[in-house]
């Protein structure tokens, strides 16, 4: 495994005070906060920063880490010497162990701390994001997700392994809802049960639709005469194809509701077709003539309400 230079990650000197470490952490945590950052690797950087803070922001762990790093060591294929942590007593990390690197888990995780025989403890819950298509919510689907999971070997050494899960996406799920998979989190200690895995569901962006809760909005392009005179139009939605009646004298932006055709949650949402009046281009003599006829024979001023 790679040796982690936690001081470098936080951008502080080895002699940094606790205040300097705190300030450096906050500056970077603001920059890479997953809710705000536009950096593509924000999530990974945030995990590194949290890990570095958890080690060098903790006097006991920092002291042990400093002792370890003061001896010559390999940058890659690093292995801590046996009993390197003799004399130190670490408290357990608060964060989910699944978010820590192999380096951290070996030094300060359960493998590094060891555990008394016969001691049992439930595994920690873990969290992951899963992105689905809108159609998956309409029809239900099975999605494959890959997680990095720390695994403690026979000699207590931690390695990270990829774990693939096929998960059933329930019909009607809304963005931001969680799927709870019992027993799929971190393994327990001794006979302790495994934790749970929570999947935070996000929808893939889809230019055709806008989703608000269980309601879904889509655009229905119409001609000026369909909007003005009314028309029966076939509209395609994720729930299927429907014939809808556009009322006469409809304006751009008018919403037509298809009750119960939104996300099939409980209760089901509605689907809204938002009318978009599309003007034919005046790119031929015939169309220009028709526009000229309208201009001449239709007394219409769309700016009247603005006082024009």
């Amino acid at each position: 495994m790679d040796f982690k230079d936690y001081y470098k990650i936080l951008g502080v000197e080895k002699t940094a005070t606790a205040d300097e470490i705190r300030t450096a952490y906050r500056r970077l945590a603001r920059k890479y906060h997953p809710d705000l950052s536009k950096e593509p690797d924000a999530q990974t950087r945030m995990q590194e920063i949290n890990e570095a803070r958890d080690v060098i922001g903790d006097p006991e762990k920092r002291s042990a880490y400093d002792e370890l790093s003061s001896h010559p060591h390999a940058e890659h294929d690093f292995r801590p010497p046996p009993d390197w942590n003799t004399g130190y007593e670490f408290s357990g990390g608060d964060a989910e162990e699944g978010n820590y690197s192999e380096f951290f888990s070996n030094l300060f995780g359960r493998a590094g701390r060891g555990h008394a025989p016969g001691r049992h403890m439930a595994g920690e819950d873990r969290h992951a994001r899963v992105q689905i298509d809108l159609a998956d919510s309409y029809q239900g689907a099975t999605r494959t997700i890959t997680l990095q999971q720390p695994v403690i070997g026979e000699q207590g050494r931690v390695t990270r392994q990829e774990r693939t899960l096929d998960v059933r996406i329930p019909k009607g799920i809304r963005e931001g809802q969680h799927i709870r998979l019992r027993g799929q989190g971190a393994p327990g200690l001794g006979d302790g049960p495994a934790g749970d895995l929570y999947l935070d569901v996000q929808f893939s962006p889809d230019a055709r639709y806008r989703i608000e809760g269980a309601d879904v909005y889509g655009t229905l392009p119409v001609t000026p005469w369909e909007a003005a005179l009314g028309a029966s139009i076939t509209a395609t939605t994720p729930a299927g194809t429907f014939d809808v009646q556009v009322p006469s004298n409809s304006q751009n932006g008018r919403k037509l509701r298809l009750r119960g055709r939104g996300l099939p949650s409980e209760p089901p949402g509605d689907f809204y077709l938002v009318l978009e009046v599309v003007l034919p281009p005046a790119d031929s003599d015939k169309t220009r003539q028709l526009y000229e006829t309208m201009a001449r024979e239709m007394p219409f001023n769309p700016r009247q309400r603005q006082g024009a």
């Binding site: 899960l165 998960v167 059933r168 809802q177 799927i179 709870r180 998979l181 019992r182 929570y198 999947l199």
Partner: peptide
């Protein structure tokens, strides 16, 4: 666990 097993979770809410 076989990767072909499909896990059925519970929807929070």
């Amino acid at each position: 666990m076989q990767p072909t097993d499909v896990l059925i979770g519970r929807l929070l809410d």
